[in-house]
């Protein structure tokens, strides 16, 4: 059983503020969903390897950057808080 305290902890990890009544509702719903997905525990043996994905890194080398300023205006326009071309955030330490 998932408790409302568990939900509180998860919501804190996920950085989502929840109202009390939603914590109760979520505990019940997530219990229901876990009840359904718990069936995977009965599948196969423990020794099966995970599926492998043939994926490789395709990032370009960190050189020959595009001309400075090419994308600045479009990106800065999306900043929720700014000062000039600077992104404004609250102090962290």
């Amino acid at each position: 059983m998932i408790s409302t305290q568990d939900i509180e902890k998860l919501a804190e990890l996920a950085r989502i503020e929840l109202k009390e009544e939603e914590k109760v509702k979520l505990a019940k719903e997530i219990d229901g969903i876990l009840g359904y997905i718990d069936q995977i525990k009965t599948a196969g043996s423990k020794d099966i390897a995970r599926a492998k994905e043939p994926v490789r890194n395709i990032f370009r080398e960190d050189k020959n950057p595009h001309e400075s300023g090419t994308h600045t205006d479009a990106l800065v326009a999306e900043f929720p808080r700014k000062e000039g071309n600077y992104l404004k955030v609250k102090k962290i330490l």
């Binding site: 998860l10 990890l13 996920a14 929840l18 939603e22 979520l26 997530i30 969903i33 876990l34």
Partner: peptide, 10 residues
């Protein structure tokens, strides 16, 4: 969305 983020975190 909140439900799935919380479930995924779990």
């Amino acid at each position: 969305t909140r439900r799935r983020v919380i479930l995924g975190t779990y």
